[in-house]
Amino acid sequence: MNMGKYEQVPHPFIIEPPDDSGRVFNTSERLCFNLILVGKAINYLPYFILAFIELGTIGLGRGRGKYRLINVKDGDKTVYDIDDRQINPGLPKELIISEIFNFENVSEEDIKLRFITHARILDNRDFVVKLDFHILVKTLMRRLHMLYYFHCNEKESLWKHNEIIDKAKEVKIAENTSKWHDWERYSSRQGIRMKMGGLKDTITYRGKIEPFLSIITAGEVLHIGKGTSFGLGKYVIIE
């Protein structure tokens, strides 16, 4: 694989913040978040849990707010509980992503996406403020390809990238309320505030969507753009 066109290998984990991020949590309140591990990183779940436990004693954020890790769940299964302190990982789930794109006998339809956290998507080294469908597809394919190659099977995908992207250009924006939202976060490691703006809100595409659905639904889980490791680029399909 030619790494010359990629700046770095993507992290095989995503930390999704709570939906009410930005609020102040008082003593005794619970803060819930999601952790998504990809490929070989699943084997390191116990280390992630121990890291979160240790982080609670050190303190989180600028004010070094301390916490206790009460439990970890995988669906209904308890993976870790503070009372017995045993780690019982669940079975990993599979994302089925098609490597075959069939554009014959496909009818046009709409798909509506809502970007929940800031989507910082680069195209030709510039941040995207209008997310055309082919840029969405190209960015998702690059991310999924790299996660698969570096953290799963070390195999190249069978996608015919140029052909797929050309077909994606035929899908148009039908409605767009997405816009750039400025946002800052504080970096405890660097001791500075960092500008991390990106796209939020909704965008509707119209065209032959069906062949692209497997990578779009995978993107719901794995996010898109820069800063995915701490939850940026999260979207959901709402229609």
Rank of each mutant, 00 (worst) to 15 (best):
I121P: 03
G22V: 01
S28A: 13
V137Y: 04
G90V: 05
K195P: 07
R206K: 09
P89S: 01
K40D: 14
G65Q: 14
Y80H: 02
N26I: 13
I97V: 13
T117A: 02
Y235V: 05
R206C: 04
L60D: 00
V38N: 06
I82C: 08
I58W: 07
K77T: 08
Y6T: 08
I165Y: 02
G231T: 02
K93M: 10
K226Y: 12
E108M: 11
G4P: 08
A119Q: 02
L144K: 05
D83M: 14
E29L: 00
R114L: 11
K66L: 15
P17Y: 02
I164H: 02
R114F: 10
L131H: 00
R125T: 10
R23F: 07
R62E: 13
E184N: 13
V106Y: 06
F133L: 04
I224R: 01
N176C: 04
Y47S: 14
K112D: 10
S28F: 12
H223C: 04
N2T: 14
K138D: 15
F101Q: 08
R23W: 04
I238G: 04
F25Q: 01
F25S: 02
G63Q: 11
I97G: 08
L213D: 06
E94N: 13
D76C: 09
D201R: 12
E94G: 08
Y148C: 07
Y80L: 03
N162L: 13
T57F: 15
L95D: 07
I209V: 04
F127M: 15
L60M: 11
V129W: 11
I87C: 03
K73N: 08
R30L: 11
L131D: 02
V24K: 09
H11Y: 14
T57R: 15
M194Y: 00
P46V: 06
K130F: 12
D74P: 07
T204W: 04
F212K: 03
R85A: 11
N26R: 15
D132Y: 15
G75M: 02
E163W: 06
D166T: 11
S157G: 07
